[in-house]
Design a protein around this nucleic acid. Structure first.
Lengths: 385, 385
DNA sequence: ATGAAAGCGCTAACAT
DNA sequence: ATGTTAGCGCTTTCAT
């Protein structure tokens, strides 16, 4: 193994000079630096991670704690993980993958063994058992997701406040209802995540529901909410019941990536045209919305951005910058082919900001120009540095 | 921070004794051990990972290199990653997540910086640029996937031979054709991965095709192969062409998780009943097969087992055991509702081992008892220890 | 069965 | 602008 001492000898300088060339924490004369760099290349030197960690108390590793749970849409998790990893690499960090399975113990392990410099925690529950550990921890952490309302404001003077990054799911829910209400729909049903997701107290699902309900009330539209398992049979049962119980339903909001295609197939099978007979709005990744058999009007779940943002805040904090607090990403609704005016409605009843746009496209195949309708505030929400 | 020295002082012993209690590499008297253990708990001591790595040249970390590519079915990757992580934890290892993006450079980083003790490489291409680095590396590596034919036998005397773990995709392809041929089908079409996957030289896709073709020839059935993008439109185009060009097609083999549901929807829409008019066999994870709108007869892709196996071999090798060579998992075909006798065929024409079983179930909803038909060799293939 | 002590390879004062 | 040196916290000989 090639050590720093080897390089120093080869270049005819002291070990510290080599170290300083590597860290850039001291100005080195150009000739010396070049000579050392040459030796490094010639010998193929790489600093030993363990030695560096021991001496500097920095590992250049970020821990990423991922859920291992049922009912979650896997591609989103994966996209976040990959965005985290590539963003981390671009800042010189590696990523240690932890499963949610270990729970609070994993947090203690990371903290106690100095195995990583900071952590990113996904799939945060409203009252998550890992939070107390995280608060006590020395190392910074960022949650992707939001625990119980305004966890960050609990004691904003305290330095151990938790940082959060997430889509503003409440606004996202509201945005969907607004869009549909603007098209004249007065009976909306929500096909949600599996019951287990709500039961567990997963933040995003609950927050979406809050936003949906608030907007429904504000716009005077009826709202029916049904958690749905990710199977065709479950979708069929839910949809059938919805139309039986509330025949006035003319629009659906889906927040459950697994049932998007089954739902569209079912509606087709039942002879309900989308969007002529029933409009469908979704909260899902763009990719799902675009590739669906009917391109879906949807609020996109910006998985990549969430991962990237989380890493950037963490890196900023590790650099000593004060990137604190909750940062919610403003929802962005893109109109595609799945939503249109309510049958018999005189379009755009209320003045809900965004117009009803090009929604009334044909039911399949076509890829109409996407008209993006940003939320009023622009893409980024409050909080941050 | 609590150090080993703190524990030693607290327990009134020397540092080395504490170390030996932790590692178990020396016999310690019961009283001493208990006293030390008590001090450890009392002080909440955790060994410093960096210090340990420096002193012992072991990190207790496994690197996992995941693809970041398009066209791959994400849930399978994720399942492997999670299986790797949990299995690793159960052996005391943590997992460092690397993206395929970095390519060979990542291998060198891991090697040079001693950042992990070993690595697992996924999404191996037939002629993968990372392989040379891997061969030169000191640290053991296991590939999930198979590079160009029998890479491990190139120089089986050499100690730097690469270990591989994978589903025997060739046998899996053959198994599908056998099953369908046994049901009397004589015209089979294969809906494969997106063209890019084949173009890239991804091992599993090519190997499956080899197996499919060989079996088709052996059983005298016609075989048509079509790579398909993961969109509804692409499936529709492919299927339409297939039935136009070869009206005699009565069975489909799908190896592309993304198009399973679109395909079934399309067939339904076209009025082709599954399995009465057309049988569908798949190569996909069990979960996909079970939850499809028509439960699919399928060779399961055992993602979890692959991840677990890879870790176990690596751990064995790190312990100095000789767990070398390629280990292929024998395919397991489970009959469900999507395959049945070819229309007008006198069932089970050729004597292809496994019988035609309960395949002729109803087309939807029902969950017939699954009859598992193992391959002749049993679950594990050759190689390994 | 236990201690003492020499590093592991690097960083960061403290020199000059 | 560069060199010297004292650790970082642990493992592991070598002693006893």
């Amino acid at each position: 193994m090639v050590t720093l001492a080897d390089v120093a000898r080869h270049a005819g300088v002291s070990a510290s000079t080599v170290s300083y060339v590597l860290s850039g924490k001291r100005s080195i004369s150009a000739p010396t630096r070049e000579r050392i760099q040459h030796s490094i290349d010639a010998l193929g030197y790489r600093p030993h991670a363990g030695a560096r960690a021991l001496a500097s108390s920095r590992t250049d590793i970020l821990a990423l704690m991922m859920p291992l749970r049922t009912g979650l849409y896997v591609p989103v998790m994966m996209e976040i993980a990959m965005a985290v990893t590539t963003t981390a690499r671009s800042h010189g960090y590696d990523v240690l993958l932890l499963t949610g399975e270990e729970g609070p113990e994993a947090v203690r392990r990371v903290e106690g063994s100095a195995i990583a410099d900071a952590m990113i925690v996904m799939d945060v529950e409203l009252d998550d058992p890992r939070l107390p550990c995280l608060r006590e921890a020395e190392r910074p952490a960022v949650l992707i997701g939001l625990p119980a309302a305004s966890a960050d404001t609990v004691d904003s003077a305290d330095s151990t406040v938790l940082d959060c990054v997430d889509l503003d799911f409440e606004a996202a829910g509201a945005r969907c209802v607004e869009h549909l209400a603007g098209l004249g729909h007065t009976g909306i049903a929500v096909l949600g995540e599996p019951p287990a997701v709500y039961a567990r107290g997963t933040g995003f699902a609950a927050r979406t529901l809050t936003g949906l309900r608030a907007a429904a009330e504000a716009h005077g539209v009826g709202l029916l909410h049904r958690p749905v398992e990710g199977t065709y049979a479950a979708v069929a049962a839910a949809v059938t019941r919805i139309f039986e119980e509330r025949p006035g339903t003319t629009a659906l909001v889906v927040q459950n990536e697994a049932i998007v295609e089954p739902l569209l197939a079912l509606l087709r099978h039942q002879g309900r045209a989308v969007p002529e007979d029933v409009s469908v709005a979704a909260i899902c990744p763009d990719q799902v919305a675009v590739h669906a058999s009917v391109p879906l009007t949807a609020v996109s779940v910006p998985a990549q951005e969430m991962g990237r943002l989380a890493v950037e805040r963490l890196v900023a904090r590790l650099r000593g910058e004060a990137a604190r607090g909750t940062e919610l990403i403003a929802p962005l609704l893109t109109e595609r082919a799945s939503t249109g005016p309510a049958a018999g409605a005189t379009r755009a009843v209320a003045g809900t900001g965004a117009g009803a746009g090009t929604g009334a496209g044909t039911a399949s195949g076509a890829e109409p120009t996407e008209s993006q309708v940003a939320s009023t505030e622009g893409r980024r929400g409050h909080g941050g540095r």
